[in-house]
Design a protein around this nucleic acid. Sequence first.
DNA 1: AGATATTTTTAGTTTTGTCTAAATTTAAAT
DNA 2: ATTTAAATTTAGACAAAACTAAAAATATCT
Lengths: 215, 215
Amino acid sequence: MTTSEENYLKVIYHLSQVSPKGVNTNAIAGMLETKASSVTDMLKKLSDKDLVSYQKYQGVTLTENGFLSAKMIVRKHRLWEVFLVDKLQFSWDEVHEIAEELEHIQSIALIDKLDAFLGHPDFDPHGDPIPNRQGEIKKTSKLLLSEAELNQEYHCVGVKDSSSEFLKYLDKQKIALGSVFKVIEKESFDDTLTVEINAQEKIISNKIANNLYVQ
Amino acid sequence: MTTSEENYLKVIYHLSQVSPKGVNTNAIAGMLETKASSVTDMLKKLSDKDLVSYQKYQGVTLTENGFLSAKMIVRKHRLWEVFLVDKLQFSWDEVHEIAEELEHIQSIALIDKLDAFLGHPDFDPHGDPIPNRQGEIKKTSKLLLSEAELNQEYHCVGVKDSSSEFLKYLDKQKIALGSVFKVIEKESFDDTLTVEINAQEKIISNKIANNLYVQ
DNA sequence: AGATATTTTTAGTTTTGTCTAAATTTAAAT
DNA sequence: ATTTAAATTTAGACAAAACTAAAAATATCT
Ligand SMILES: [Mn+2]
Ligand SMILES: [Mn+2]
Ligand SMILES: [Mn+2]
Ligand SMILES: [Mn+2]
């Protein structure tokens, strides 16, 4: 499989989580910063290879084949992210781009050995689950901070938005995976939260609360 | 720079070691398993980018620019090889192919951090020197086992041929970097050597002796 | 339903890197 | 010094992956 095909598969995989009954051409184009016509061309090719099932104008879904392939790319991406953060001391906002390249390295032995070297991690630096070599993903019952109940203790287990800007903001606010949260108050007017984070009181906007996973 | 351009540069770099006054089109084609006409096309492109100086029919040499770029690719290749062997427990005959892919990952920060993580190694698993980030290479005065003097102690510091077949043969013979050598006898008829390796006497063909570096 | 807007696909180009076949240049051999 | 052989370059073609512009299909709005 080419790098380009892999990038398409991965994007379709991610978009399928939100639109399981068919991913739009335009949505794919948006994610890959390419044009809809290019997407159509690629969908035909992926369809010929039995990686997606595609009918004109009807959107696209992954086949069993494509689903597994996509999860293997995600597996590689997330394992490399763990490597970059845990071993090379990158911060969590710097690793995505580099992993975007590393995920296309072919060798299966490499990934198996990397996985072992990292101690078979279950989650990447952003709290996203790492598929195992069979493509199985551990399900956990996390919820958004915005959905958390008042006066109950949670800890931060992931971010929904893993853009560099958001992650840097969290660094500044001293919020990290593992941070302990307790929602003290919810302003009904704009959904702003007053949250105790690691025993420190902070005001959290709804936008932020909608991008933090807790458990 | 594209992966293809990088592969050409690296091959020209290696061939330049042997033919410093100009590398032949056919030699490049041979190394890259491609056709001479493809090489000619690429040489024009590299020439336009001031990475090689090229005159029709006269062979090609690296410019200052191209020379530095090539050494950076070699640096990446060899650092990744060290990583694969030292950290992921690959054997020295398995790493070349994988490093062939990893050497094209772009990030400079990645290579600097990898270098630090590995403890700034000077040599790769095959005894080849690793250029530093300025492109400087530590020169050492190694010689081929075939050129070694009788009854003098050497140790193995590198291999000239790093093909999987040769490396596996060395494994079988329990010859590794660091092995201690003493040439006991040289058969003048076919240059076969009787060598004491780690206090064990062995017969070494000229072909083998011509591919082992000692010091 | 009919008109309008949006989405998607098709048709035709472009760039990169490759190839084959033919032409040209250089090197080697008589 | 010719002739022959080998190496190299040119010309023309192709596949992959992208693009633009135009056509077709679907969705939305009055
Ligand atoms: Mn990618
Ligand atoms: Mn991640
Ligand atoms: Mn390479
Ligand atoms: Mn090596």
